[in-house]
Design a protein around this nucleic acid. Structure first.
Length: 425
RNA sequence: GGAGGCGUGGCCGAGUGGUUUAAGGCACCGGUCUUGAAAACCGGCAACGCGCAAGCGUUCGUGAGUUCGAAUCUCACCGCCUCCGCCA
């Protein structure tokens, strides 16, 4: 949520920053609502003040045994008017709130201008895509040939866009998550958290999934939702809290499954594990002081990159342009891993600074020594998407005979195993 | 699932219809005293909204209601605790 003060003060600025994201806002509508809100609110509060004063007089009069019927009659009259005013004020405030909650965050000044992902800016490439002297297979062919990946059975159990992993591949998937958690907790100073995979609507509003993106979520019959990312439960830990300033920054990491309905993605990435209704992700979340959040974004991105470096997977870092930013983000770096099976770089992590956008929705604040509560800044990033990392390992580490070499750093998690081949357990 | 109890500021806690403008304590901040610290004493100290300000308003888990007036009464919901049942 944007700061309503900023809209009151300089709506032209807000409109122009949103225009860079391809969003047009009805400034006249907002200004009209605000003018009415101000008038109605002033009148409402005048009435309330009058009523409170009279009620106090009535109390004093009654205590003395005097007659208070004139004052009581006036309060009745004031209450009639007040009822109308309060209703109208409530409606206006709701309308303002709806207007505000539909607006995405403003892009940071350093975000490149652009209308679509074609305008994203590649910042750096790390690692050299491997040259293969045999025909490259994608992860689906590799996994099915090894009898370790079975999409047909997954579709029988659930539907398309689910996967079934077996044996060494299931273990490799688990190894990746363990390796990521251990790296972030032991080397990068994150605290591991275990969180609910089902959350309420308030949490979804806090991080910005609601009200605009309900169709992307799985909703349960009790009104709660399956999490689309650990960002939701982990970030909402600080909702409605005032954190002592000396406790910041707070760095949390969680490994969770993620559930996405992928509505509107029919025909996109239908093959393999790239786009699933259920996938695992290790998520990094930071709560920081406002002045530290851009340094924290660089640092958090480097933490995610560390995983790719240790796995020796080639990747590139891309700065999303204004038109490609997610709803709540002020700035985002995507990490894209090289997939030989697709002969291209594919997103494997998205690291964002939300500034105070989520904190304002969540009322997540901190207090400096002796100061007033201030909104903190939130950040998060995948560190990494486990399923896509598994795909990247399979495709980049494949051998001519269809076996898959296990990256060095994962072998301790695999009981020392160095290669996945057919017929193994 | 059943029965009972409870939700008050950063924390503890008083308050069962009217000068509550939420007592008191802890913590915290400032001051006096002191070589310094501690103790003692004095003062300050919830959040949010509107307003240039004075100030006004809202908030006692949440929402609805009763009343001239609600932290206090009624209803619903949420959460926590205790006991019973069930269960990994």
């Amino acid at each position: 949520m944007l700061d309503i003060q900023l809209l009151r003060k300089d709506i032209a600025f807000v409109a122009s920053r949103l225009a860079s994201r391809g969003i047009t806002i009805d400034t006249a509508h907002f200004e009209a609502l605000e003018a009415e809100r101000k008038e109605i609110q002033t009148r409402t509060q005048d009435h309330q003040a009058r009523r409170n004063a009279l009620s106090k007089q009535i109390g004093i009069a009654k205590a003395k045994g005097e007659d208070a019927s004139a004052a009581m009659a006036e309060v009745v009259r004031i209450n009639d008017e007040l009822k109308v005013l309060e209703e109208r004020l409530g409606d206006i405030q709701e309308e303002l709130n709806d207007f505000l909650s539909q607006l995405p965050n403003l892009p940071h000044a350093s975000v490149p201008e652009g209308g679509s992902d074609a305008d994203n800016v590649e910042l750096r490439r790390v690692g050299e895509p491997r040259r293969f002297d045999f025909p490259v297979r994608d992860h689906v062919d590799l996994g099915e040939a090894l009898d370790l990946l079975d999409f047909a059975t997954a579709a029988k159990l659930a539907s398309s866009r689910f996967s079934l992993m077996r044996g060494g591949l299931a273990r490799l998937h688990r190894a990746l998550a363990q390796f990521m958690l251990d790296t972030h907790t032991q080397e990068h100073g994150y605290e591991e958290v275990y969180v609910p995979y089902i959350v309420n609507a308030d949490s979804m509003r806090g991080t910005g999934q609601l009200p605009k993106f309900e169709e992307d979520l799985f909703k349960l019959n009790n009104g709660m939702y399956l999490i689309p990312t650990a960002e939701v439960p982990v970030t909402n830990i600080v909702r409605d809290e005032i954190i002592p300033g000396e406790n910041l920054p707070i760095r949390l990491v969680a490994h969770t499954p993620c559930f996405r309905s992928e509505a509107g993605s029919y025909g996109k990435d239908t093959r393999g594990m790239i786009r699933q209704h259920q996938f695992d992700k290790v998520e990094l979340v930071q709560f920081v002081r406002p002045e530290d959040s851009y340094d924290a974004l660089e640092e958090l991105t480097s933490h995610a990159e560390t995983i790719l470096r240790k796995l020796e997977l080639p990747y590139r870092v891309v700065a999303l342009c204004t038109g490609d930013l997610g709803f709540s983000a002020a700035k985002t770096y995507d990490l894209e891993v090289w997939l030989p099976g697709q002969n291209t770089y594919r997103e494997i992590s998205s690291c964002s600074n939300f500034e105070a956008f989520q904190a304002r929705r969540m009322q997540a604040r901190f207090r400096r020594e002796g100061g007033k509560p201030e909104l903190l800044h939130t950040l998060n990033g995948s560190g990494l998407a486990v399923g896509r990392t598994l795909v990247a390992v399979m495709e980049n580490y494949q051998n001519a005979d269809g076996s898959i070499t296990i990256p060095e750093v994962l072998r301790p998690y695999m009981g020392g195993l160095s290669v996945l081949r057919q017929g193994q357990d």
